[in-house]
């Protein structure tokens, strides 16, 4: 309470003759309060130096040379300083490669049950193309054969997916988690035979 009273009193006094509007004072005064680490209602050189970065020196900021910063001096500093200019060369915005549309061919010859699996293969295929992968990938006929069962756990599908996984690893891409990590289907449990 005492701290606030002191700060507000000082701010009221410092507002006189500053050329700032009351609204401007009210908007920046809390920041001086925040800078005022010892709570004496004023920002001195030590408090200022502890937080300043590329800001004017305390002497420059202290326009009236009274040894303390007030709201008008903070406003002047905020308004008079170019905050930042980015080095354009350091801007990092890499283009996303164009999808080359390999996956947009109209599918044909697949039954509706296999279409989703086939779409997944085509999707993965286009991903590798996007990454610039150049090694031979399974041909559509292989995909067609692999998905003919419509079962991700089939040996044909698993073999095909494994080839994709190798390709993804070679291209240093992250394969969508889970799909290729699917455990092979468990071997059928033989029906219990007659008790010995």
């Amino acid at each position: 309470m005492n701290r606030w009273f002191t700060a507000l009193s000082w701010l009221l006094i410092s507002a006189c003759g500053s050329g700032l509007t009351r609204a401007e004072h009210s908007k920046v005064a809390p920041f001086l309060e925040a800078l005022d680490s010892d709570g004496d209602g004023r920002v001195d050189a030590k408090e200022y130096d502890g937080v300043a970065y590329k800001a004017p020196s305390f002497e420059q900021a202290d326009a009236d040379s009274d040894g303390f910063l007030g709201p008008s001096e903070l406003v002047g500093m905020l308004r008079g300083q170019d905050p930042m200019t980015f080095d354009r060369d350091e801007q990092q915005r890499m283009p996303l490669r164009e999808r080359r549309g390999r996956g947009t061919k109209a599918p044909s010859g697949f039954g509706p049950g296999q279409q989703q699996l086939r779409d997944v293969f085509v999707f993965l295929d286009s991903e590798l193309e996007t990454a610039g992968w150049t090694e031979a990938l399974p041909e559509p006929t292989e995909i067609k054969a692999a998905v003919s069962t419509g079962d991700l756990g089939s040996s044909a599908c698993q073999g095909l997916l494994a080839r994709y996984l190798d390709a993804y690893r070679g291209a240093s891409l992250s394969f969508p988690v889970g799909l290729l990590n699917t455990a092979p289907p468990a071997a059928p449990v033989p029906a219990p035979g007659p008790a010995p």
Binding site: F31, L35, G50, Y53, K54, A55, M77, P83
Partner: peptide, 9 residues
């Protein structure tokens, strides 16, 4: 980090 007394507040 902004170049002002507030950046490192």
């Amino acid at each position: 980090l902004k170049p002002s007394p507030l950046g490192l507040l």
